[in-house]
Write a protein that binds this DNA or RNA. Structure first.
Lengths: 167, 167
DNA sequence: TATTGTTATACTCTATAACTATA
DNA sequence: TATAGTTATAGAGTATAACAATA
């Protein structure tokens, strides 16, 4: 047990209720000006909004990205997919297992390197991705609205620069 | 079993090696212009760089943010901390268990609402957070460099707008 | 020797639901 | 009835290491 509580608190001392912070106004301190912190908040908000729009049922942004990478690069290997999405091959395997089980992708042995598989979308995968892409496009139009058309290009560039410089 | 592979592939067909995508140049398709996609890539890159800088040992960005919120709002309750960091109370509990086990925070019953705890940093918590803040500041200076001083204010504002509009 | 993919395993983060105790 | 906090539990996502097949 690392912490025991529930019946009796670990510390019997009572706090004076003097320094209780006001209602919901929480101070952020240095966090308020950190790019990294706001990057996380924005990403989380975007993630949740995407999930909500798609219906939350199944396909998360990462799966959507994988499907898109497969459609755009038909026949790519799992290793290449892992590198492109920044995931280890052992992470790619169960993700593709899931997509294959749903009938959205196929894996075929390649003739020229028999260690690897060529990954492709099935017709159903194409259809599901097309529908998903409509949701994603709507989601990103909402983001465009928030950011402002005139700011989008530079905003995207800064995000790309961060990923490139720290990746 | 949802997928059986390893010895023999599920499909005996061989792919022609014609459409194999070139080397490492993977096409992104519509992803290339999605704000949501690049938000995720930038956030992941920032996260990894932060972890690397701190030493990867222990404190992740989310823990760092919690410690900072506690320092900036001494005596706040776990529920308030959860709301401020966008996490359920059942997520806050084990996180604070961990921080308490490490001697970085204390939980004291409040006098005016005996259901809740007032959370505060210990002197060691203050010291650890101070050190962590140095790393975080260095990390964010690196981000500032990437983004450019002249762009930072607007960049931060756009991130804040996204979090506010979609949160 | 190195790489592709799978498996076993483990760890972290997250939430929902049920519970106790307070309010 | 509602809220603060804990616990049990479950699910998703991730990685490391070891392995078989192939290069």
């Amino acid at each position: 047990m690392t912490s025991r509580r529930g019946g009796e608190p670990h510390s019997p001392r009572m706090a004076a209720d003097v320094e209780e912070p006001a209602g919901e106004a929480v101070r952020l301190g240095p966090l308020a000006d950190y790019i990294g912190y706001h990057l996380r908040l924005a990403q989380e908000a975007s993630f949740r909004a995407f999930a909500q729009r798609v219906g939350d049922e199944d396909l998360k942004p990462q799966r959507f990205a994988m499907l898109t990478l497969i459609r755009e690069n038909p026949g790519l290997t799992q290793a290449a997919l892992g590198r492109a999405s920044g995931r280890d091959k052992s992470t790619v395997t169960p993700a593709l297992d899931d997509l294959e089980r749903r009938g959205l992708i196929t894996r075929e042995r390649t003739a020229r390197d028999r260690r690897s598989y060529a990954v492709r979308l099935t017709p159903e995968g194409e259809a599901v991705l097309a529908e998903l892409t409509r949701h994603a496009a709507a989601h990103d139009r909402a983001l465009d609205e928030i950011v402002g058309r005139e700011n989008k290009a530079e905003f995207l560039n800064l995000l790309r620069r961060i990923a490139a410089a720290l990746g």
